[in-house]
């Protein structure tokens, strides 16, 4: 699942080259795990298994230990992420004003569940507790853009503008 380059050592080396550049800047100490993971995720967009294995060997940790840390923090992702990240607000104000219907409309339009990414890697769907734009409820954010006062009918049009 990790990389599309198959198992050949050469292509794996090529795939891991950017990571190895990152690792050069860190000593082999457990305390650097989180900064390394952050930089690796910036590099690859997510944290593929091969990348985690390489980090584990570098820091002399087991893969389970690294996996434990990655799954603890919501900032880390084990799956590729879409080009556009949609965050649907589930805060109280949005909830009261139909946030759930908006979420359902997004799910319908993209054919994915919360936390998933579309096959074409265009969109990732997430829910968040509160965006802090309650005056505009119900709201969603796509990347850095806020879309407020939504109704389910408006969703397809908004999504289309990001394709």
């Amino acid at each position: 699942m990790a990389c599309e380059c198959g198992n050949k050592k050469e292509s794996l080396d090529k795939y891991l080259a950017p990571l190895r550049e990152v690792l050069k800047n860190y000593e082999k100490e457990e305390k650097y795990l989180i900064p390394i993971l952050q930089e690796a995720q910036d590099e690859y967009g997510y944290l593929p298994e091969e990348v985690l294995k390489e980090i584990a060997s570098y820091l002399d940790l087991s893969l389970s230990q690294v996996y434990g840390v990655v799954t603890f923090y919501t900032q880390f992702h084990l799956e590729p992420r879409g080009k556009n990240i949609i965050r649907v607000c589930m805060g109280t104000a949005c909830h009261v004003r139909g946030g759930a219907d908006v979420l359902a409309a997004v799910k319908d339009a993209l054919g994915i569940e919360n936390g998933e990414t579309t096959k074409d890697l265009k969109f990732t769907l997430e829910t968040v507790a509160c965006i802090g734009a309650c005056g505009l409820a119900p709201v969603i954010m796509i990347n850095d853009d806020t879309h407020g006062r939504l109704t389910p009918e408006k969703i397809p049009g908004i999504l289309a503008s990001y394709k």
């Binding site: 298994e49 985690l52 087991s62 389970s64 690294v66 434990g68 603890f72 084990l78």
Partner: peptide, 20 residues
Amino acid sequence: GVSALQFSNRGFDSIVSTAF
């Protein structure tokens, strides 16, 4: 010294599991 098992995820979803 194997560390095959670890806590993963958090909150209600916390489990002890192997990598992946």
